[in-house]
Write a protein that binds this DNA or RNA. Structure first.
Length: 470
RNA sequence: GGCGGCGUACCCAAGUGGUUAAGGGAGAGGUCUGCAAAACCUCGAUGCGGCGGUUCGAAUCCGCCCGCCGCCUCCA
């Protein structure tokens, strides 16, 4: 059995069969660039980053597209509050996003289209809908009549009656149904605008993704992803537009990641309970955040906690330290072929809808097993197993640095945060070593204690005393 | 109101009918060590929110109840 993916469309796991053998085309809704991205965004980014990596691990030729929404009411608001242009706002946050993305270890997508650079494609799509009677114009606004698309609600499992009954949306009397959504909006004074058959205006939100995904990936394409909150109405509307316009399936597998909560509540800008990606990556290793997310399944809700992050950071350190031991033990042995049984086990876990918690458990079982071999001095099969471990970690986006760098980075971060000096620490260690050589153990233990209070642990190894952040 | 999700040990978290309920952290004991740390070994849920039911057999299926959360409005 190959890869199984939970498809929101069928609400069940399905065997993944790409449209073209050996090739996968995937589109993920990116961020709206009106503010800093928060760790909730990071979860979505990392989730689909791992999907991307794992598909590559499986040997697929993957075309990954993730957009920027750089045209939106919130960007307009922000620009007017700061007396600047929308372009300036989106440029600033795209720039910031790119830094975050790099810090998080995300692989670059093949394309990162921006809404503002695809106005002609958007207009063409709306015109096509018009020709099919699936768009109507009122005062320069163009709406999509949801009644005209028979499958409306199939993704979010709702029907029109239910939706209309529960609708809490403000009534726009000009719309035929309260659920009809804007394809094109007439621009007000001071807003960005483009010439169109309906006058000066700008696209609605949903239509950009329909236009851009199809431009880069064709229709249908294989996987469409995003956060759970996009199922309705965003993705539902994308389906209505694209399938309405072309009479063909938009995307075959729909994947949605669960939320990141803070104190049990959804992390969102409007409620103010957020941590930005920058805040977190300034405080600790980005890899800790990735590991933390991987520890629970992507569809489960996850409550963000500092304790969890601390644990994750230590866990990553444990894997790295084992890698250091393996490297030392196999130095000069040349590169080994990755152990195939291990890779097979990894694949079995990941094939089950990207079950990263199980994959991580497998990694830890292997870490323990490697340490046991190391302790026993049995190094014959070490190379192949360590090589497999690296391949697995790569597929998850972990262990992308040298172990030494990870340890040093943690040290430097800690020293800086605590206002310590490396020279001072080394001085203390030297003092302790002198005391130990002279068998003044009370003195040596006092120094150990002193360093421990600074959060620094000493390890006396055959190669000398090493120190690390605890 | 409609639709959906979640509740597994001190904490985090896999597991959707069948051997001893993964893995990590914390804790206890041990090996090692001048002492430690790291690593390794051993021990921690007779029970999976509660009550019923189906079944030879259920954390897993069904029903009811309790608690928490999300979507239905911009939202990863």
């Amino acid at each position: 059995m190959g890869l199984q993916i939970y498809n929101t469309l069928s609400a069940s796991k399905e065997e993944f069969v790409p449209l073209n053998p050996g090739e996968v085309r995937i589109y993920v809704c990116g961020v709206t660039v009106y503010d800093s991205s928060h760790v909730g965004h990071a979860r979505a980014l990392l989730t689909f980053g791992v999907v991307y990596r794992y598909l590559k691990f499986l040997g697929y030729q993957v075309t990954f597209v993730r957009n920027f929404t750089d045209l939106d009411d919130k960007i307009i608001d922000r620009a007017s509050r700061e007396h600047t242009t929308c372009d300036a706002i989106s440029a600033r946050y795209i720039d910031e996003f790119n830094r975050d993305s790099k810090a998080l270890g995300l692989l670059a997508p093949a394309h990162e289209p921006k809404a503002t650079e695809h106005i002609p494609e958007i207009i063409a799509l709306i015109r096509r809908l018009e020709e099919k009677g699936m768009a109507y114009q009122v005062d320069g606004d163009v709406f999509f009549p949801v009644q005209s698309f028979p499958g409306y609600g199939k993704l979010s499992r709702r029907n029109l009656e239910e939706l209309e009954a529960g609708a809490r949306i403000e009534i726009d009397e000009r719309k035929k149904s309260p659920l009809d959504f804007a394809l094109w909006k007439a621009s007000k004074e001071g807003e960005p605008w483009w010439e169109s058959p309906w006058g000066k205006g700008r696209p609605g939100w949903h239509v950009e993704c329909s236009a851009m995904s199809t431009k880069y990936l064709g229709q249908p394409f294989d996987i469409h992803g995003g956060g759970l909150d996009l199922v309705f109405p965003h993705h539902e509307n994308e389906i209505a537009q694209s399938e309405g316009a072309f009479g063909r399936t938009l995307a075959r597998y729909w994947m949605h990641n669960g939320f990141l909560n803070l104190n049990k509540e959804k992390m969102s800008k409007s409620s103010g309970n957020i941590f930005t990606i920058r805040e977190i990556t300034a405080e600790r290793e980005a890899e800790a955040l990735r590991h933390y997310f991987l520890l629970s399944h992507y569809r489960s809700p996850l409550d963000f906690s500092n304790q969890g992050l601390d644990e994750a950071e230590r866990s990553i350190g444990r894997i790295y330290e084992t890698m250091v031991r393996v490297e030392q033990a196999t130095a000069g042995a040349g590169s080994a072929m990755p152990d195939s049984a291990l890779l097979e086990a990894f694949r079995r876990e990941m094939d089950d809808d990207f079950n990263t918690p199980r994959a991580i458990a497998l990694i830890f079982e292997e870490v323990r097993s490697l340490n046991r071999l190391l302790d026993d001095g049995r190094t014959e099969r070490l190379g192949g197993r360590a090589a497999a471990l690296k391949v697995m970690a790569e597929a998850l986006g972990l262990l992308h640095r040298s172990p030494q760098l990870f340890v040093e980075s943690r040290r430097e971060r800690w020293i800086k945060k605590q206002g310590l000096s490396e020279a001072g620490i080394k001085e203390l260690i030297a003092r302790r070593d002198r005391a130990r050589r002279e068998k003044r153990f009370e003195e040596a233990d006092r120094v150990r204690e002193e360093l421990k209070e600074m959060g620094i642990a000493l390890e006396d190894t055959p190669g000398g005393t090493v120190w690390k952040v605890r």
